[in-house]
Each structure stands twice: as C-alpha cells, then as structure tokens.
Nucleic acid binder design. Structure first.
Length: 487
RNA sequence: GGGCCGGUAGCUCAAUGGUAGAGCAGCGGCCUUUUAAGCCGUUGGUUGUGAGUUCGAGUCUCACCCAGCCCA
C-alpha cells in the first residue's frame, strides 16, 4: 500500500487500486463462480464444508494478525475470518487493505465462531471489483431522500428494508402474471406510442417520429388497443405496462406508472369484481402470507390496518346518500350544489363551472373515497364519469361499473365494456365536445366489426404495491422515480 | 402554481452574528474468535449557488437551484 498523503477518499481508493495492479493483481475480474449464495452457505452448515462465495464487503473488524469481514450478496451476508498464518503475510496485507464496498470472492471452509456465528475460514480470496467511492454509513444507512432516489443503488446497498420492498414488488408482478396465465389469459403488448392517446382523460406526452414525419403521443391508457384485440378474437388478454401522464407529481403520482389491464370476453363487471378480489387476495396470501396488512410509521407504530378478508359491494348513489342525505338525488341540481358547498363544506373543491355530476363526484372523492380503507367495490357510477362502459338496464343514468377502493384510494376500475359502436361514437363525440380531442376513428371502425360483450379492469400497480407493502409514497415503490434532472 | 420545512466532512448530525465540531468511515499504530469490536494517534470543509447587510455571515436579507410535506 502506498503511503500517499492524498486527502480524498476517492484518491485513496484509486491509490489502492494502483497498488493492487503493481502487485500484478487485476482488481476487476471477468468472472468468479461461487458454489452457492451467502445465505445458502449459512443455511446449509456443516463444520468444515468447503465453500466459495462472492459478495460486497460491508464491514471489517481488524484484530491484528487476524481479521473478520462481512460479505454480502443479494441473499444476505456471511462473515469471513482471515488469519495471517493461514493465508501468509503478503496475502494478509492485501486482504487487510481491501475497502468497504469492494467485491471479492472467497474460498474456505465453514466453521462456527466462539460467539456462535457461522463463518468462512479463509483459505484464499480474489478481488472481483474495486469500489472507487465510499459507501453510505453502515449504521445510519442512507437518509437523504434526494440521494436515495437519484442514486437508488446506494439506497439498496444501505437499506435492506428498501430492497425488500422492491423484491416484494417483483413477487407481486410475478403473481399477477401467474394468476392470469392460470385463468387462460394471453399476455399482450400494445403500442406505447400512439397517434391518438385514448382510453382515459389525461394530458399526454408528445414526441416526434423523424422517419414517418409525424407526431406520436405516449399512451395514457391501454384500453383501446385491448378492445381491438377482443374484436380480433383474443378473448382473454392482459398487459402490464407503463402509462404516461403529463401532469403533476405527488406522493401518489409519477409521470410514468405501471398499469395492468385485463379483458374477458363474455364476462361483465361482476365477473371482473370476482377477478380483482381473487387476484389481490391471492397476491396478499402468496407474497405477504396474510390478508391483514398493517401500515406503520417510522417508529414502527401501526397507523393503519387494511383487512382484505371481506370485500364490500356498494352502489355509488347509496354511499353518497349515506353522507349527503337520503334525498340527495331527489332535489334540484342547484340545491345539491348549495348543500355541497354550505352543508358539506366543499367550497374549495367545487369549481364554478362544475356540472351536476361533478358536484356529486366531489362529494364522493372528498368525503367517501378516503374513508374506504378496507376493500369496497363502489358500483353503478353516473354514466357521465365512464364513457367506455355500458348503461345499467335498471337505471340508465348509471353504468355497469365498479371502482375498487382500498386504502382510501381507487385501486382498480372495472366495467362491462361498451360494444355498441353507434352508442360509443355518440358518447365519445359528446365527451370530446368542447375540447379539441380527436376521435380514434380506427378504434370505432374496429368496434363496427363487432366486439363481443366483455368485462375489463385496470389496476394501478404502483398504488397496489403501496397498499400491500405499507408505503405511503409512490416514490418508495418505483425504483427510479421521476425527479428534476440536476445540472 | 401557493404555503411550510430543509440542503454543513464520504455518511448521520451539532455549532448566541465572533477560531466550523462530534460519532462512524478513512489513514497510521497495538491486538489471532470479533460482530455498531476495542484502545492510541491522525487526515479531511469554497457550509446548495449567487448577490447583499456587517468590522465580521453556516447563522440575517434577497434571488435562484434541488429535495420533502401540505394545499390548489
């Protein structure tokens, strides 16, 4: 090791790198094949069993003529014990000057220390990758939000619970795929670049295709392409993909987010309620091993309990009547507006230009949805709210629709899909109305070729993960949440 | 877009307008079963950026950047 009087931690590490090279050691290897993972070595312990393991150095305890280090791979950590008289003076000196965060491969035999910890008695080691920068502190972890999000790899290195969240997110998505494959659904991929962004009301991102010389939009929903596939005879299909909405960022909104949509020909909204309930219950049982989910604060105190055992079904109008009065839908629109503003104190939430259904919508959004912690299917919404669904035969002011609310948020909408091309055109034209929204003629032509009756759902995967994994910010379930670029 | 809070060593954090500190990490020394190892010594700073007030600014003022929370 050089006696360089450098003051930068990076310079010190670079000097160590040069020192290794000067000894003929390559600090960056192409390959090292461990016999097993660190956690497996600990789990399958027999005294004296030879192992070869690889990992990042996360701690070291120097004892003079011997030394302990911890190495860690994705599975976990294991302690390695090096002794000067076993590996020799020269190797021991190199070993002693390895840095926290360096990757090494070790060869040795398993033993148990005096304090009962399964460890590797080192016979030889290989440097695999030198870390030129110091890792975050071992004890405090990494707290700085900005660094955690911008350099998520440091967050994952320093904070095991963060890593667990993302491994569980992966397990959730795996379960979603198995669930639908088991039910005979086909996984499809549809365009993220669309000439007309449809299927939802949201501001799109715009881009330009040079060769075609035209603009495209990043999709805001998957729906309209999935329905084309129903027309094409794919009766059960699903897609897990990114949607993009050019709107504000918040604890619940990221500009790109992951959406699941699934469609089932010859099903309806009731079919899809069963699907959502089975899906989410199955995920909770398989990934979390429970249907009762506890959200905790920083001190570990339970702040919220979500019980997924029973799924309530309630009509939108009934829920509104519960909080706004039994005669809510019998009085005049003017009276509804007055009550909402004066009696329900929603003045700040009701804009002057709001239509009648939007006034009721504000009542639902502000006073009802946040209270729906345990799963509730809110059904039969006013038809104005959902232009792509079929009317309810018994009450044509509503549509055959549900919004599954859990954790005070809408997690999943679903409905009996509109398959009448003439009614669909009228609804979309009326909706486009004042706005300069273009009609997706190609979609309407597809409907005119005949779409089977079908049920469909969407599930916001990020919000589902927040609910299941006890995270209050969408940024904590997205590996690289959107931040303003620095520099 | 509005309000509130924050940005100090690699990390976690201190510092009445008056010499920028601690713990850990790093570096050197001692120590062959430690584990937040221990003991001794020691390096490390353009206090987010830019102006201003002041004899003197991490601290006060203004603008800006970035981030977080709340609201719209």
């Amino acid at each position: 090791m050089s006696m360089d009087e450098t003051n930068s931690l990076i310079e010190q590490r670079k000097a160590k790198l040069a020192s290794l090279r000067s000894k003929g050691i390559d600090p960056f290897r192409n390959k090292f094949t461990p016999t097993e993972k660190c956690a497996e070595a600990r789990a399958n312990y027999t005294e004296g069993r030879p192992v070869e393991l690889a990992g990042r150095i996360t701690a070291h305890r120097d004892m003079g003529k011997s030394m302990f280090i911890d190495i860690k791979d994705q599975s976990g950590r294991i302690q390695v014990y090096a002794q000067k008289n076993v590996i020799g003076d020269e190797q021991f000196d190199i070993f002693r000057h390895l840095d926290l965060a360096d990757f090494i491969g070790v060869k040795g035999t398993l033993f148990t220390t005096r304090t009962g910890e399964v460890s590797v008695k080192l016979e030889s080691f290989t440097t695999l990758a030198k870390s030129l920068r110091p890792p975050p502190a071992k004890w405090h972890g990494l707290e700085d939000m900005e660094v955690r999000y911008r350099q998520r790899y440091l967050d994952l290195i320093a904070n095991d619970d963060v890593k667990t969240v993302f491994l569980q997110r992966s397990a959730i998505i795996h379960e979603i795929r198995s669930f639908f494959h088991n039910r005979g659904y086909v996984e499809v991929e549809t365009p993220a670049m669309q000439p007309i962004p449809g299927g939802a009301a949201a501001q799109p991102f715009k881009t330009f295709h040079n060769a075609l010389g035209c603009e495209f939009y990043l999709r805001i929903a998957l729906e309209l392409y999935h329905k084309r596939l129903l027309v094409g005879g794919i009766d059960r299909l699903f897609e897990i993909g990114k949607n993009f909405r050019n709107e504000g960022l918040s604890r619940r909104h990221n500009p790109e987010f992951t959406m699941l949509e699934a469609y089932c020909a010859f099903g309806d909204y009731a079919t899809m309620m069963e699907t959502v309930e089975s899906l989410i219950k199955g995920i909770a049982e398989k990934v979390l091993g429970t249907l009762v989910i506890e959200h905790k604060d920083a001190e570990g105190k339970v702040t919220k309990t979500i019980d997924l055992t029973t799924w309530r079904r309630a009509k939108y109008k009934d829920l509104v009547r519960e909080v706004a009065g039994q005669d809510w839908f019998d009085v005049s629109p003017e009276e509804r507006r007055r009550r909402a503003i004066e009696d329900l104190k929603l003045a700040g939430d009701i804009a002057a230009g709001y239509e009648d259904f939007e006034v009721t919508g504000a009542v639902f959004e502000k006073l009802i949805e946040p209270t729906l912690i345990n799963p509730t299917f809110v059904t039969h919404l006013p038809k104005e709210l959902v232009p792509l669904a079929k009317l309810t035969p018994e009450d044509p002011t509503t549509v055959e629709v549900f919004e599954c609310c859990i954790n005070g948020q809408e997690i999943s909408p679903g409905y009996t899909e509109q398959n009448d091309p003439i009614q669909q055109r009228e609804t979309l034209e009326h909706q486009a109305g004042g706005e300069q929204q273009k009609l997706d003629e190609d979609f309407l032509v597809a409907l005119e070729h005949g779409m089977p009756p079908a049920g469909g759902i969407g599930i916001g995967i990020d919000r589902l993960c927040m609910m299941l994994l006890g995270q209050e910010s969408i940024r904590d379930v997205i590996l690289f949440p959107q931040l303003k670029p620095k520099l």
